[in-house]
Design a protein around this nucleic acid. Structure first.
Lengths: 211, 211
DNA sequence: TGGTTAGATGAAGGAATCTTCAGGTTTGGA
DNA sequence: TCCAAACCTGAAGATTCCTTCATCTAACCA
């Protein structure tokens, strides 16, 4: 097993012409394609380059190594989900806790399950590439967004928003992962149950309710 | 990246003398040691054998390949957690839903977090070894155990036990994973919040409550 | 149009591991 | 004590991939 050095993920060269920008996109896209079609084990830099219609050398002009390439793909995917969460949190400012919960579940699942295959494939490379670190960085943003949203709730909560936000994000990402890895479980019913769980949790946190 | 063939995980040879039984244990133990000390990337069969005090050849006498070795280690770990869940489910038969939820959270987290380092290390190898498949097999047992427990609840639930069990197990394993991968989040408070969430969910499922 | 820089190429070097197997050692029973 | 079965050994074969770099082509600008 080759050492996947975890050095800088900075591109070696920044695309300055439109041509190279297209090349970078093609490489990134090809990486996902190969991941889906061939699987992580057969994902070689040569094959990715080939699928992208360029030579390996070109690939290495923009990514210092295989690891960095994979990380970049992962980072982009996670960012999309984080963006969805952020959007929801913006929209729900000042709303009632239950509405927040429901919207959060909807938004998160929609983003995460939009392309289950890709999500699953990316989880599988995560462990080779310090995916945890990336997930944590990106996740921290989402967690904070949720916290801010909760603080703006029309009804105050019995615990600090940070704790509740951590729980919510933990449940979402956890269940999300479970679903992605067991696609047979994905059904409209699951979303409803998750909403039910999140909402009843938030409801139980209303100050007037004794815990 | 070598192809980790996913062939049979049957040992090539069954230990017939006490000597070899000890060897197998040593190899399994060494695998975890190496995983913890060196990390997944540096985990080579030669190194494992060395740490176990035997030669590589011996290792290959009991495990057809590296992949099978890793899978066996993973399977054992997951089984321990499943056992803990089973035990809880037995104990809580006929109890009130909230008691079940609380006990489940406690039991699951205790088992999963007993050795966080090892749990984390094993998650990291999971994706190389079809860990998903193993997790699903072992998880199915737990899920069914929870279902049976819920069916025996002293108060009936508004949804079928299977759905609720799937949700509960999903949340537990999902959050469990999140915690294992972010050890800084592990705190007594998290357990309480998780109990709160699970209990309020189960409470919301009581038939007398409108959903 | 000519020069300079950005971008692309791909054969080949180099580094690692996994896995085998022919042969040596230990164990346990007759 | 002696033998057959069970165990163990570890050098070396066989593969596979990552990454580099000298060289070539395309694009841009004066």
């Amino acid at each position: 097993m080759p050492t996947l050095s975890k050095q800088t993920l900075n591109p070696r060269k920044l695309p300055k012409q439109t041509r190279s920008a297209a090349t970078v996109s093609a490489i990134l896209e090809a990486t996902i394609q190969v991941l889906l079609r061939e699987g992580k084990e057969k994902l070689t830099t040569t094959l990715v380059a080939q699928r992208a219609g360029v030579s390996v050398g070109t690939l290495y002009q923009y990514f210092p190594n295989k690891s960095a390439l994979l990380r970049e793909v992962l980072r982009r995917h996670l960012s999309e989900v984080a963006e969805a969460v952020n959007r929801v949190c913006q929209e729900q400012r000042g709303a009632r806790p239950e509405a927040m919960g429901k919207a959060l579940v909807r938004g998160f699942l929609a983003a995460k399950l939009r392309d289950v295959k890709t999500s699953a494939a990316l989880y599988s490379v995560g462990s080779d590439v310090d995916g945890m670190k990336i997930a944590r960085q990106v996740g921290a943003r989402s967690s904070r967004a949720i916290e801010t949203m909760l603080e703006s709730a029309s009804e105050p909560l019995a615990v600090d928003a940070g704790t509740a936000a951590t729980m919510l994000y933990g449940v979402l990402s956890g269940v999300g992962r479970t679903l992605v890895e067991s696609p047979e479980r994905v059904s409209p019913g699951v979303r409803e149950e998750l909403e039910q769980m999140v909402c009843s949790y938030l409801r139980s946190l209303r100050v007037k309710n004794a815990r």
